[in-house]
């Protein structure tokens, strides 16, 4: 009986300690920050994926960038199949596509898609 009590108290202590450690808010990600990201460009002569893939999957690509970029911080770099490194950032897209002000909107209007990107990002339509 005594033994069981001691075991129980030990387990409880271990649990408490595990909890203590879990409350220590650390730094996200383990690797030391690389400066590599600073080399990543925002513009490029061709897209991050082939045109056909982007036609059907640009939302997934953007969704993935949206979810990961902030947390990867300086390492939020997208590497294309041919080895180019680009920042995971909507401005990477707009560096090319921003030149056609209606690039996003003509399709989205036709498909009645209402992405909420422009709640915060300033759309090419809003620029003078």
């Amino acid at each position: 009986m005594r033994k069981r009590h001691i075991l129980f108290i030990g387990l409880l202590a271990a649990l408490l300690m595990a909890l203590l450690f879990s409350f220590h808010a650390g730094t996200e990600g383990e690797a030391p920050a690389s400066q590599a990201a600073q080399a990543a460009a925002v513009d490029s002569s061709s897209c991050v994926y082939p045109k056909e893939y982007m036609h059907t999957h640009h939302m997934q690509v953007l969704e993935d960038w949206k979810n990961t970029a902030a947390h990867e911080g300086p390492d939020a770099v997208h590497e294309t199949a041919d080895g180019r490194k680009l920042q995971k950032n909507l401005s990477t897209c707009l560096a090319c596509h921003g030149s056609n002000r209606y690039f996003c909107f003509s399709c989205h209007a036709y498909a009645n898609a209402q992405p909420n990107c422009w709640n915060c990002h300033i759309s090419p339509l809003e620029t003078p």
Binding site: T27, E28, G29, A31, P32, A33, A70, G73, P74, D75
Partner: peptide, 10 residues
């Protein structure tokens, strides 16, 4: 959160 380069980001 704190990034690996010490920046606290949102």
């Amino acid at each position: 959160f704190r990034r690996t380069d010490g920046i606290v980001a949102i």
